[in-house]
Amino acid sequence: MTQLIHSVIRYGVPLVFLNVFLEQIGAPVPALPTLIVAGALSADGRMSSTHVLVASIVASLIADWIWFLLGRRHGYRVLRTLCRISLSPDSCVRETEARFERWGLKSLLIAKFIPGFSLVAPPLAGAARQSTIAFLIYDGIGALLWVASGVVVGRAFHHAIADVLNALENLGWWAVAIIASAIALLIALKWMQRRSLYRRLRMARVSVHDLKRMLDEGSAPMIVDARSSAARKRDARRIPTAVVVEGDTLQERFAALPPNREIIVYCT
């Protein structure tokens, strides 16, 4: 067995802890593959699945609790910051808020299985002034389900994963380079996806000053208030002339408009 695998086994649980913590705090380092490998190693008796479970749940709870406290302290501004740094442009605050509004703290039970939602749900719970104890209970159960699913998959497919590990073992430090390249490629793809979205939006975001000038000149395009219903309940005001759009009213509102009509959209 090479030094590489020895290192993984020797520092396995702290590595899993670090990986889970970094992912939950927002770093683009997926932890699920690590949990699956840890599960496979535990099936071979080379790691303790109990230690992996406990370390992962604790790491997840610490990271989520930090976000929960930040949400409680800074409110919805934290969500906007998260959206700015997130590599998942589809995980917009509006969708997350709508989901959280629908399911409440129960959404934490499945949050970790939904890309983007996992990171935004804890500060959202904090901003919504949910009870700390209830948050920790639901978040802890959610973390348990997520970690256990990775470990169970690893244990179930440990023979196949052992083959992959052996192949990596033969590659030695090349394996590290390949994995690092794969992660870099994943980040690059996400980044390109985000750039692509911005291009589709023409990246020409409109400043509030320009919009005010357009309104004053009477040349403002259609303005759409795309905040979630929860956000509109918190602040029942809108930019003058803005139309409020819910998912189910979108069709009727925009059916008669030409596709080249300029539309300015705002969220919270």
Binding site: R200, K212, R238, R261, V265, Y266
Partner: peptide, 30 residues
């Protein structure tokens, strides 16, 4: 959603509603 429905000139407001409020610009009640 608007882009998916074929609208080609959809532009986001920089800073969102909070930036509008912070700038002290007028608002309407919903």
């Amino acid at each position: 959603m608007l882009i998916d429905r074929g609208f080609t000139l959809v532009r986001p407001l920089k800073g969102g509603f909070e930036a509008w409020i912070e700038a002290g610009y007028p608002v309407e009640n919903l």
